[in-house]
Design a protein around this nucleic acid. Sequence first.
DNA 1: GCCAACGTTGGC
DNA 2: GCCAACGTTGGC
Length: 138
Amino acid sequence: MTNYWLIKSEPDAFSWDQQVANKVEPWTGVRNHTAKLNLKAMKKGDYAFFYHSNIGKEIVGIVKVVKEAYPDPTAESGGWLAVDMQAVKPLKQAVTLAVLKSDTRFHDLALLRQSRLSVGPVGAEHWAMICEMGGVHV
DNA sequence: GCCAACGTTGGC
DNA sequence: GCCAACGTTGGC
């Protein structure tokens, strides 16, 4: 059973272009318990949207989980977790936060309901709709 | 630059 | 255990 997620990154700190260049990237630095639980629930092969917060405020690409949760090497303590993400493909057309907010079908999307959550789930229906809007299929 | 949301800290 | 103060995130 494949699950779908959305992960946020400020492009100033780590952008989609860097994700593509690096191919596989350790997703570290999550310091929020709700987000950590989401990381823990990720299975190898799950897909995630790559969202640019602050600058762009749009979904720009798709990544997949290639390594399930393991202790975050950037945390000295606290039991924080990381996963490894691999770039899959960019969206042909970025899907902006403004568009998602203006569409009532997305009102219960975690991204909109909890704006500060950096790792959140995406329902299968939402996933399919956003892929269609982005002009991609996985 | 401001502010809302929300998590964390510390006094009691 | 409650809650005020404070810090951070992220949209506008």
